[in-house]
Design a binder for these strands. Structure first.
Lengths: 309, 309
DNA sequence: TGAGGGCCATGACGATTACGCATACCACAG
DNA sequence: CTGTGGTATGCGTAATCGTCATGGCCCTCA
């Protein structure tokens, strides 16, 4: 028996379980009994030939194999749903969703998601605005935004400590990279050794902290793991300006992996090896409560966009 | 009952039927009886709430609804298969595949497919070469190529008449478009009326036939459905040169829809309405015989690339 | 015109799967 | 110790899946 023998129902159930954290909650959400959900999971694990979930007293956790299957399952289920929608030509719920985002997410993920959403749900209107993580969280709390894309750096803490806790899901977690000019010596390899970042000139973000530790990329500039005082040759907030400077050979800058998709000609985006792992998370946050259909659709679009490379 | 209630088996069967053209052939290929396949199709049609196939005495044809479902089904099934492979960590068969292609396919589809293949199967080496359809067919026959991307124009005939017949599958069928400069009056709308193509200056392909009827885009230039003698302002083979000329405002040119993905700034690619439908097919051909694993993988990658927009 | 071949649909039947109900077991908190 | 929350599994019922056999339609050829 192989994963290819899995059923769509099992994949759909698995995704719901992974999101909700317990078989019981997933069952309730999908209109099954816990028993049926348990069997679907068991069936999927047999097909996968691996345990996909660790069972704990208070729910389940994904195993590494579970994470692999979840990634594929999400794509599959969303694709089937998209097919159903297209086929039915369903009149979707009209509505407006208000989304907040930080700059690098706005440059890549948001356009990608909005384009997909415009195609799959032409009736949904999305308004968006840029902001830093603290400001976006305040706007969520105030009810001025329905959804917000937030960045998060280690140690990965909740966006704020107020109650009720924000409903936060991780869309992606990827390592930071460095953008180098095409002709730069460091551009010759497939990665940059952290030790080779010594003595480089950097294009930093705004503010006094040249390394910009915030997860939302606003202050990003010199490599955060750099164990020397960085030489800051330029300081800029605008990503297009920063990347143009890189292209012009003016220096290096740290970028979220996502930005690699939109760098202009003359720029290479490379991972860094050695030194501490510089991971960043892309989060999607909202206030707890019923999930309106347009918000759910945008959430799906953002998730799909984050899963695609 | 909705498409979301469909089974993976039904989707897999449906795709095989669509490719092979008869329920009987699909059944044989998948190890089912014709009866089981017929029921899977019926089940899928119930889920879709529409007829997906026209039944004819010699097999089946896709309905418009069937085409929609096929597009999604292919993605779903390939994604499940990809998940299975990733999960199994299967050592893939190493090997080299030789692929032939014509220029516009080489500019878009081949890079896209090869990039995807490099990621999913790093052990597979692909060598490619450009050629026109007649030359590529000869190379297939001579065993110098494993696969070839061929263009086909109406009336859609087999690539040649030799035996054994080449194994040919249609990856895509799309209408030709016209590339116009951004500032051109015809660039203002979402489409071009065929009547408005009168009197335009054209960037033609090589050779004496300015409209270049061959499906493989080599001679493509003036709109093939043009009912006047075209004014040819430029003649070029190289697509980058042609498109750069368009961007520079030197004239219009006919392009396969696929090329819209890689036009440089300053170019708009628009469909044409009115006049005869100018459809072109993208075919993938090989000699009949056992399908080596690396060839199958490249075939899948090319198919996936052709399905994505 | 009739025979034969190819193709799809469907009745009948047996095997397998899916799901709900009830229950057992485990961990944790008060 | 009791109550709560969570997962796994036995049992019974209903639905689904696939094969075999058959019928109907269309086309080709002698």
């Amino acid at each position: 028996m192989a994963l290819t023998d899995a059923s769509l129902t099992a994949l759909r159930v698995f995704r719901e379980v992974a999101e909700r954290g317990t078989l019981t909650a997933a069952a309730s959400a999908l209109g099954y009994t816990q028993s049926a959900v348990s069997r679907q999971i068991s069936s999927l694990e047999r097909a996968a030939g691996a345990s996909l979930l660790e069972r704990r007293h208070d729910g389940v956790r994904l195993t590494p194999a579970g994470r692999v299957v979840l990634r594929h399952a999400a794509v599959v289920v969303d694709q089937v749903d998209a097919g159903a929608r297209e086929l039915a030509g369903l009149p979707d719920d009209p509505g407006t969703v208000r989304l907040g985002w930080f700059a690098s997410a706005g440059a890549v993920l948001v356009p990608r998601a909005l384009a997909a959403l415009r195609e799959s749900h032409p009736g949904i209107t999305v308004t968006t605005r840029e902001g830093g993580t603290p400001a976006l969280v305040r706007a969520l709390r105030a009810g001025a935004l329905d959804l917000a894309l937030l960045g998060s750096a280690p140690p990965f803490r909740p966006p704020d400590a107020e109650t009720p806790a924000l409903e936060v899901r991780t869309l992606a977690e990827r390592a930071l990279r460095v953008a180098v000019p095409e002709g730069h010596p460091l551009a010759r390899g497939d990665y940059i050794d952290a030790a080779d970042l010594h003595g480089q000139r950097w294009i930093a973000g705004p503010g006094s902290a040249a390394t910009g530790g915030a997860g939302d990329s606003t202050g990003m500039g010199a490599w955060p793991g750099l164990d020397e005082r960085p030489e800051v040759a330029h300081s800029a907030r605008d990503w297009l300006a920063k990347l143009s400077l890189v292209a012009a050979g003016c220096g290096l800058t740290t970028v979220p992996a996502m930005l690699a998709a939109v760098v202009p000609p003359g720029v290479r985006v490379l991972p860094v090896r050695g030194g501490p792992k510089e991971q960043r998370r892309l989060l999607l946050a909202r206030l707890p409560g019923p999930l309106p259909e347009p918000v759910a659709r945008l959430t799906q679009a953002l998730r799909a966009a984050a899963l695609s490379r």
